[in-house]
Design a protein around this nucleic acid. Sequence first.
RNA 1: GGUCCUGUAGCUCAGCUGGAUAGAGCAACAGCCUUCUAAGCUGUGGGUCCCAGGUUCGAGUCCUGGCAGGAUCACCA
Length: 596
Amino acid sequence: MNLENLIKENVVKAISELYEGTVAESAVQVQKTRKEFEGDVTVVVFPFLRTSRKSPEMTGEDLGKYLVERVDVVSDFNVVKGFLNLVINEAHWIGVLNDANANPEYGYTKVTEESPLAMIEYSSPNTNKPLHLGHIRNNLLGFSISEILKANGYKVVKTNIVNDRGIHICKSMVAWQKWGEGATPESTGKKGDHLVGDFYVKFDKEYKKEIAELMEQGMSKEEAEAEAPSIKDAREMLRKWEAKDPEVYELWRNMNQWVYDGFDVTYKKMGVDFDKIYYESDTYLVGKDEVMKGLDQGLFVKHEDGSVWADLESEGLDQKILLRSDGTSVYMTQDIGTAKLRFNDYSIDKMVYVVGNEQNYHFQVLSILLDKLGFKWGKDLYHFSYGMVELPQGKMKSREGTVVDADDLMQEMIDVARTTSQELGKLEGYTEEQAEATFEKIALGALKYFILKVDPRKNMLFNPEESIDFNGNTGPFIQYTYARIQSVLRKAKDAGIEVPEAAPVVTPSAKEIELLKNISRFPVAIADAGKDYSPAIIANYCYELVKEFNQFYHGHAMLKEENEEVRAFRLVLANCVGKVVENGMKLLGILVPERM
RNA sequence: GGUCCUGUAGCUCAGCUGGAUAGAGCAACAGCCUUCUAAGCUGUGGGUCCCAGGUUCGAGUCCUGGCAGGAUCACCA
């Protein structure tokens, strides 16, 4: 049993024995003792005064005496105002260390056959342009939350719904046909997603020009926007696509394939992956069917013009369109179709959608609709809603060219990592491949940590200069601590000093106990992160742990410690911190280097 | 206008279901490498926790009302 529950349980017992009263275990507050007081954990006694009918001080004294007497691990106590500070004995902390070391998956909950299945949808790109910084936040959050749910004992299926059809891709196709001159990724040496993105931009430029010309000829803005030749071509292209025109279909297949090949490179660099990919071109018709079925069941209504609507006014929402008057599907229809396919493919207990907060309303509606249509997870689907990424100069706008491209950003960070690392000259003896792999770990560690350490719900500011900083509360600082530990362990091995499986019982210093307390909090951090869907909790935990370790490192010799037991204890401790850091960072999708 | 989210140091962010004197990093300044990796450590300065009420032993945290910023309310996705 963990310490907190043990104490809670005994406080409840104490109150019933001392005062013949009852309090719920949940009413017992156990927290870390603040630095300025003596003790390890603190019980707040205020909630018990009504039962004890004594002053806070006396109640604290009563409980303290009881706990010291009855609970092995409690060795001493003191009472300050209404706070009962308990001193926990060394054996307990060393026990924490040995438990953590004995279990290679310390802090993780095992996944079994009976574990619930969570499906996480993330990434979900359009296929008309390359990934940018906004997608990076999405992908990192999606991947990390998948790892965190796994660590909390879920079977996890990572999924991606690729937005591969629609007017947006037709725009790129039209532009390619008109101005592409047969360009391919091979002929231009350009990454496929960037090539297709260039044509999307080209389309927009020409379209704008046409609008301006038409307006000069006296058209209104709305008219010009509808009548410009380019947009008409794109619409025509979409019609042909829906009619499965062979030529259009082949072009569509080709251009999408270029994009997928490009995305694969980006995903790989980013270190994210998927177990199952769905394509909108496969799901939109399924969605239509579901809506028609719902219509038959009387869940939806058909208007005179033929459009189909869901009336959600009884839920406090509006009317929502599900099929246009021409029978084509909208965004919501596709999401219903995708849900249907997933429902058939997996036995889903928890569905998580990692999608930006601009779609909060969409998911509120989707949840209700899926529930009406009989998906058991519809009602409590989780929209993992995250905030936007802003730049120091404001929002990113693709049309104004202020987007930060994902590939460029990662490459830039790798370049900076290389330069910094070479200046510090710590990778001597590494082959070029080993060194490059390390630069990449550091660069991506910096980027991922920078993004994941902030609360996902909040909009975040991405300052390129700060993100590339490797000092302070950063990914590389945490990686550095890991590398430091590995360096010591390597040297121990070289010197023939053994790191034992179990730590000998020594009297730890205050700083060592602080470290052990931090180690004991790892399982709690994982549980909290799972409950709140928050990689930030893991990031902050890792930071606190390594900060504590670095303080320990400066004040405590390991290899040079003469007392063999103390030396062994410290090596076990360092080894354990390294392991926890590695496993913690893994939950963020961040790799740790052996040297840096 | 309706709904939802956010507001903490100059800047970027923590602060667990309400608990003791609100914490980090960056930036500034001052120290620490002949000693296990200085991408580190130590110290100094820096706050009306947006404002006003309320709930109670106790509020950055909960409630109400403001203020400011953002999102959304399409036969766009």
